[in-house]
Design a protein around this nucleic acid. Structure first.
Lengths: 335, 335
DNA sequence: ATCTGTAACGTTAGCGCTAACGTAGTGTTG
DNA sequence: CAACACTACGTTAGCGCTAACGTTACAGAT
């Protein structure tokens, strides 16, 4: 069932059917209604494939996230979806498992579909990819992190600042022997920025990092447990008074591992993370964490991208605020 | 940069470039290499839009899931992605928030792209949608639930049976005063099937359901807390000896709420759920739950769909096993 | 010398749609 | 009432690609 067939049955030109289906001007109301009736009766469905080819525009938006295995990118995606759906865009989706190679290959495949725009997670794409996307002059949104040199648009958090603020908070709370626990370097660029910010904050506050351990390459509850095990293989329990975990997932696993060792939280040790996951918001013992506006980020980012697709580019980089949520670091200062 | 331009520069016909780019037969090795060199030098990227239109096939697969806000569909999607990526398919993705209307509208939009196949969550699509998809003779995979009357292919769990098995387990463990806590009816069809199976299992075991509460419409940690509050507003704590939660999310929230009420788990009350989430696998107190092979389901389902797209349809419905994981119901039988 | 088969190409005719432009018909204006 | 503007259409020429088929060259068989 093609547009020509509908035109033939309705006794009009194909352009009239095209105009009727797209709801564009240049058609009387009666004729438009008649055409839509015929189209419905025949079960005609316009082909976006042919339409996009002819009009040299598509309603496809490529979205790449590292993983769906935590609620972070799920929340961001949900926020984007509310906007994209409203404007009639489709998302062509893939996960990269934090591997640049996967992302580069995905960019190849998605560009072949001539998408209206792209959403990439973070700002640490391969330089080849950045160059290509800039050359393609395609609307691109980098999300979750920020940079001075965006490909096009960028919305995210200042991860370095979040780590720095956490260090300041811990020092203010009286902690003097902090440890950092995360995953292997080069895996999650944002986590590394937080770690560096944290260390800078400690240094500026005159406090030394007591220990730093990195385990596996997947941020998960069990990674948090493993990291605690690795930490206390190395230093004794009373040498560390607070742990900054890479994120809440690891922190929550870390709580379990610390309690299993007989440590009382927060009396014996403070626990901090990043993200303020849903789970953390219901726990009786909540980790001190940085709340990240994930849904809002997705929504605002999608709006900016759509504005950009329609030709409006206002603010290339938007930094959203991170809120420090006090939790398991609320005891009084240590001696 | 089009195929004709590459052909002109390489001094061959467009068909030769087409054959070279797609790696199909009918070209000498030297010429193929020469063409690929020219294409690379010119930065030529074949247009999947034009290719799919001309060849009347696409590498787009539509995937619809209710939500990404829990790890269930994230795991399923991860499993599918490993397969789809290997075979060069793209996923056009959307979430429906458990609303049929959203799903129907999405089906309209995705069909316009003439996808090679579709993946839908569950088996409870609107009858109009089922009819349309059957009429379109499109490869369709329904995932996560099973049915006698699939649209095309189906891979999932027997949710009724999972609920039934849990009832039998609880009775065998000596529980006699169970409660069911979930979300509003008509929201999550699979959860309802588990609830019905659970009740059937109780009835067959000669045990009556002591209470049943339904809160909000989002299965979350906090919904589990709310449900526990609603339950004990209505019945006293010693009238219920075990709770079957709709899923692990609610069960884990429920644990927190029960402990906040001073109940000891599992001594005072047994806690059970569904899914065996990652979090449950690291907790010191783990809920009794049904482990669901989510990644595997995605992988196998995607393989079946691709086989179907390539013309092979073996087994229309695959039921994957659910494993009951004992947890917070392991005390000895009650008096 | 002729025939036949086959690999390696090129040519043609679309796929289903839309941008751009053309044209008829109907008012509107001075 | 000619000149003009405007609306409501239709016509033409592609968008970039590939299926199908045609052609050529050459090897080997007869």
């Amino acid at each position: 069932m093609t547009i020509d067939e509908v035109a033939r049955v309705a006794g009009v030109s194909t352009m009239s059917v095209s105009r009727a289906m797209r709801g564009v001007e240049g058609l009387s109301a009666e004729r438009r209604a008649a055409i839509l009736d015929v189209a419905r009766a025949l079960g005609y469905e316009p082909s976006s494939l042919a339409g996009s080819l002819a009009a040299a525009n598509s309603t496809l938006i490529g979205v790449s996230v590292p993983t769906l295995n935590d609620e972070v990118f799920g929340d961001i995606f949900d926020g984007m979806r509310t906007v994209f759906t409203r404007y009639g865009f489709q998302t062509v989706f893939d996960t990269t498992d934090y591997a640049r190679k996967n992302e580069d290959e995905w960019i190849d495949r998605i560009l072949a579909w001539r998408p209206a725009g792209l959403v990439l997670s973070g700002v640490d794409q391969s330089s080849a990819a950045k160059k290509r996307l800039r050359a393609a002059r395609l609307p691109v949104l980098q999300i979750w992190d920020i940079t001075d040199d965006p490909i096009d648009l960028c919305i995210g958090l200042d991860h370095h600042e979040a780590g720095y603020a956490m260090a300041q908070h811990l020092i203010a709370m009286g902690y003097r022997h902090p440890a950092y626990l995360g995953v292997r370097r080069g895996f999650d660029a944002r986590a590394e920025k937080r770690a560096r910010g944290f260390k800078a904050g400690l240094t500026d506050g005159g406090v030394a990092l007591r220990a730093e351990k990195r385990v596996s390459n997947a941020s998960s509850f069990s990674a948090g447990q493993d990291a605690v095990a690795a930490l206390f293989d190395d230093v004794s329990m009373n040498e560390v008074d607070v742990i900054y975990f890479m994120n809440d997932h690891m922190a929550l696993g870390g709580i379990i591992a610390c309690e299993a060792r007989g440590m009382r939280i927060p009396n014996d040790i403070g626990i901090t993370g990043f993200n303020n996951l849903a789970l953390n918001r219901v726990l009786p013992l909540r980790v001190t964490t940085s709340a990240t506006p994930r849904f809002e980020m997705g929504r605002k980012g999608a709006q900016a991208l759509i504005a950009r697709i329609k030709g409006v580019k206002k603010q290339p980089v938007q930094t959203l605020p991170v809120e420090l949520i006090p939790g398991l670091t609320t005891r009084s200062a240590l001696p």
